[in-house]
C-alpha cells in the first residue's frame, strides 16, 4: 500500500447523494481477476452513454475540473461490498474522497487501498462544492497527520476524524494482514481455548 501523509490538489465536484458502488464500477466490469484496469471504467455509465459517447455534462469529463480529490454528496459508496469500487477510484487517480457521510464497507475498502475517505460536516461540504464550482482551479490541502482539510488562499478549514490505528497504517503504508499475522500465536491459543 502507498504511504499517505499530505496532498495539495485541485478537486473534482460530484454533487450527487447516495452514490452507490454500482455507479462507481458497474457489475459487468467485475469479471477481471486482478486489481488493475478498473480506473478506465470508473463511473462508466455516467461518463459515457451506451454507444460510448462522452457525456460532457458529467464533472469528470469537464476539462475545468481535475485533481486527485473527489468531492461527493452524502452517503458515498453505499450498496455492494465490491472493493473494485476503491480500485477503480484509485486507478483513475483519486487519493482522497470527501463527503459528509460514507457507507461502512466502502470506507473500510478505501482505507485498505490507501484511498482516504475524508468525512466533513454537511456545511463544509457545501462550502467545498460551491468553491470548486465557482473557482475550479482552487487547491485543496489535506494533511493526514494533523487531520486537517483546508481551502488554499482562504482561512477555511475543518478537522476530520480517523481511527488512530488506520491513520498509522495509511501514513506508513501498512496493511491489516501484517498486523494479523503478527498475532498468529494468540489466534491459535484462542482456537484451542474455545474447543
Amino acid at each position: 500500500m502507498e504511504k499517505f501523509t499530505k496532498i495539495t490538489s485541485k478537486a473534482v465536484p460530484l454533487a450527487i447523494e447516495n452514490i452507490d458502488t454500482d455507479q462507481i464500477i458497474p457489475a459487468r466490469f467485475l469479471k477481471a481477476t486482478d486489481k488493475k484496469g478498473f480506473g478506465d471504467n470508473v463511473f462508466r455509465d455516467w461518463r459515457f452513454d451506451k454507444n460510448g459517447n462522452t457525456n460532457t455534462a458529467f464533472s469528470l469529463n469537464n476539462s475545468l475540473y481535475s485533481g486527485s480529490i473527489l468531492i461527493a454528496g452524502d452517503n458515498f459508496g453505499c450498496g455492494s461490498s465490491r472493493e473494485h469500487a476503491a480500485w477503480a477510484l484509485v486507478g483513475y487517480g483519486f487519493k482522497v474522497i470527501v463527503s459528509s457521510f460514507f457507507a461502512d464497507i466502502f470506507k473500510g475498502n478505501a482505507l485498505n487501498n490507501g484511498l482516504l475517505p475524508l468525512q466533513v460536516s454537511p456545511s463544509f461540504l457545501t462550502i467545498l462544492m460551491d468553491t470548486i464550482h465557482k473557482k475550479p482551479e482552487t487547491e485543496i490541502l489535506v494533511d493526514l497527520e494533523k487531520q486537517i482539510i483546508s481551502i488554499a488562499d482562504t482561512n477555511l478549514f475543518e478537522t476530520f476524524e480517523i481511527d488512530p490505528y488506520k491513520k498509522t497504517c495509511m501514513i506508513n503504508g501498512y496493511d491489516d494482514i501484517d498486523y494479523l499475522l503478527s498475532k498468529k500465536e494468540m489466534i491459535e491459543a484462542f482456537e484451542t481455548q474455545r474447543k
Binding site: 461490498s81 465490491r82 472493493e83 473494485h84 476503491a86 464497507i105 473500510g108 475498502n109 485498505n112 487501498n113 490505528y165 496493511d175 491489516d176 494482514i177 498486523y179 494479523l180 499475522l181 498475532k183 498468529k184 489466534i187 482456537e191
Partner: peptide, 18 residues
C-alpha cells in the same frame, strides 16, 4: 456481514478481521 476483498485476504491469512 459483507467484507471487501482486502478483508477476504485477511481472513484467508488469519481467520480474523480487525
Amino acid at each position: 456481514f459483507g467484507i471487501g476483498t482486502s478483508q477476504v485476504a485477511q481472513v484467508f491469512a488469519s481467520q480474523c478481521l480487525l
